[in-house]
Amino acid sequence: MFGYIIRRSLYGFPILLGVNLLLFLLFFYVNTPDDMAETFLGEKHITQEQIDNWKQEHGYALPRFINTAESFPGVITQTIFWQKSMSLFAFRFGRSDQDNSDIGTEILRRIPYSLCITVPVFIFSMMLNLFVAMIVAFYRGTYVDTWVLILCVVMMSISALFYIIYGQMVFSILFKLVPVSGFDSKFPHYFKFLMLPILMGVISSFGGGVRYYRTIFLEEINKDYIRTARAKGLSEGVVLFKHALKNAMLPILTNVVVMIPFLIMGGLLTENFFGIPGLGSYMIDAISRQDFAVLRSMVFLGAFLYVISLVLVDISYTLVDPRIRIG
C-alpha cells in the first residue's frame, strides 16, 4: 500500500514539472520582466535604469535558463527558472511582485477564509443533494420526480453569477435579512456574512448535484441485490437509505475527493462578489494587478492539490470497496 502511494505520487511529478515549465514560458517569455517592472513602477515617470533596478531587486535580472557567467551548479541555480520556478517544489513561493509580502504566509492566512465558505457549502449541498436525490428516487415516476427534474434542469442552466446577484437582491435588499456582502473575521461576527454565500452555494449546486446522485441511485436500484432486499420484505426506505446508499458510495466518493482542491482554492466568483478574503479572491487580485509571482504560485498549488486529490481517490477506492485491491 505504501509503495502504491509513493508510486502514484511520483506519477504526479512530471505533471507538476510540465505545469511549472508552461507557467515559466508563459510568464517570462510572453510577458517579460521589463513589462512587469513598467506595470509596477506606475508607467508615468519611469526610465530604463529604474526598470533595471526593479528587476535586480525582485530577482528578475538573472538569465532565464542558463547562467553562463557562473560555474556549475550556479549555471543552473543562478537563473530565474531555478530561483522562481523550481523553488515552488519546495513550497518556497517567494515574495509578491506587488507588495513584497510573503506569498506562502498569505496563502496560509487565506485558506481558512476559503474553507469557511467551501466546506459548509460542500457538506450542506452534499447532504441536501443526496437526500433529495434519494427522495426523488424513492418517488420515481411520480409528479415529484418529474417536477424536481425540471427544476434541476432549470437550476443547472442558470449561471452562478445570477444566483449571487439575485441572492443578494432577495435576501439582503428585499427581505433585509443578511448583509449584502463583506466579512468580519472576528467570532461570532462572521456568521452573518457566511449565511448568504453558503446558501447561494448550496442552491447553485442543487440542480447538478441532485441529478448526478439520482442517476447513481437509479442505477443501483435496478441491481439484483436490491431486488433481493425487497424480496426479503424490507421497506422501500430501508432498501434505499441503507442498501442502495452504501453501494453508491464509490462514485459519490470520487466526486467528493476530487472536490478537495476546489475547496482549498476557494470560489472565484463567490469570494469576489461577497468580499470574502480567501484564495479565490487572492487569485483574482493577482490577475487584475498582474502579480505574476502570486499567479505562478497559485496555479502551481492548484495543480499540486489536484494531483494529490487524484491519488487520494485511488486510495479511498480501496477503503470503500474491498473488491478493489492494489497489486
Binding site: 469576489n272 462578489f273 483574482i284
Partner: peptide, 18 residues
C-alpha cells in the same frame, strides 16, 4: 473601510445607508 470588489454590492450598501 471594508473590501467591496464589485460595484453592485457596494451600491446596495450605500442605498441601505451602510
Amino acid at each position: 473601510y471594508h473590501l467591496e470588489k464589485e460595484s453592485i454590492p457596494n451600491w446596495n450598501k450605500f442605498l441601505q445607508g451602510y
